[in-house]
Each structure stands twice: as C-alpha cells, then as structure tokens.
Simulated scan of single mutants.
Amino acid sequence: MNQEFTAEYWQQRYQQNQTGWDVGSITPPLREYFDQLENRDLRILIPGCGNAYEAEYLFNQGFTNVYVADVAEAPLQNLAGRVPGFPKDHLLRQDFFSLSGHFDLIMEQTFFCALEPSLRPAYAKKCHELLQPKGKLMGLLFDTTFAKAGPPFGGNRDEYRTYFAPYFDFIHLDTATNSIPPRQGSELFILLKAKTQE
C-alpha cells in the first residue's frame, strides 16, 4: 500500500472534514440497482466504504449480510452512530487487500479512485478473489481526468477494461444516465461478473 495514503492520512481527512467526495447520501445509480435486488440474504461487501450511506440504505431495506471495510476508524464510527443496529462485526477496520471471505456482490463507490493507480490491477484481482463464482462487482467509476493531483485519480473505460478483463465478464460498462448533477457525464456504471477460473 502506498505509504502516502495510509490509515492515518484518511483518518485525518475525516477528522478535518476534508471529504469532498462525500455527497451525504446514496446516489441514484446505486439506489436503483439495489432496489431491483430481491434476495435480502446476499453477502455484500463495500470496500473503502467511507461514511457508507449505501450500507445504511441496504440495512434499512432489510439486507442482513452487508459488510463495510475502511482503513480509517472515523467513517465506521459514523455509520455505527447513525445506524445503531448495524452489526458491529460487519464493521471491518481493515485494508482491502488483507480482507478474506467470499461475497455475492462487491459495491464500488469512490474507493477505486482513491487508490494509488498502480494498485488498480491488484484491486481487480482482489475483487475476483473475494467474490463467489459468478459473483458481481457493481458500482461507479470516474470517466474523467482531474485537474489536481489525486486522490481522486481519474481514468477512462478503455483503461479500466485492461484491469478487469482478465477476471470479469462485462455486463455493463456504460456512462451512468442518472448521476448526481456535479458528476453528470463523468461516471461509468459498471456491472461485472466474476469469471470462473479453469
């Protein structure tokens, strides 16, 4: 893990309220995907979860196996404070690359773009390792270049394909049609299915 973006770095960002990526609620593309899921027992992982409004939404909709992971303590505490019933053992203060277990769905929302770009191939591989056979990776990726040095780090769909193609079949990798106004036209909705290794 790049030492510049350590747990202490992210903890400080939360403590100093330097969280420009945080829009304060679940965003429409993610909500609409979750709303069409029927199986409330799916094992769902949200890595680099931040304040985890998505986990809060899912929990309130009756999803019982939602796990959130972050290297910083503050956002996990924030979720626990907002949703006292959220299972404490589903709050994982852990580096994504050290996680274990198997999940049916991994949700991506502003974690990929926070990683040092050199880690992107490892991210794709780790997502595949954490998913059940034919499990899915769903979420949003930025389809833009940022003027300032990251994080967040930008990218584009052709670049992303190179990372995910070895491990996933592509169901969707399309411009999101229902992004929040500040992100209109600069987000890709992804839905990828884990390949079964021969």
Score class of each variant (00 low, 15 high):
Q132N: 15
E159L: 12
L137M: 06
D143G: 12
P121V: 05
F97W: 01
F168S: 09
P181N: 13
E187A: 04
S118F: 05
K148W: 15
E108K: 06
F153M: 08
D169L: 09
L141Q: 15
K126W: 01
K134Q: 14
M138C: 14
Q184M: 08
D169Y: 04
A176P: 08
P182I: 12
P133G: 05
H128C: 07
L131D: 06
L141P: 15
T162I: 04
T110S: 05
D104S: 15
F153D: 13
A165L: 06
L140N: 09
P133E: 07
T110Q: 01
D174W: 08
I106N: 12
F96T: 00
A147V: 15
T144R: 10
S118L: 04
G155T: 00
I190M: 04
D174R: 13
Q109W: 06
A165M: 03
F112V: 02
L188W: 04
T144K: 10
D174C: 15
F97N: 00
D143F: 12
P133I: 11
L137R: 05
D174S: 15
F146C: 15
F96C: 00
I171S: 08
A114F: 02
H102G: 08
D143L: 08
S100M: 12
S186L: 08
R120D: 02
D169G: 08
D95I: 00
F96N: 00
F153C: 09
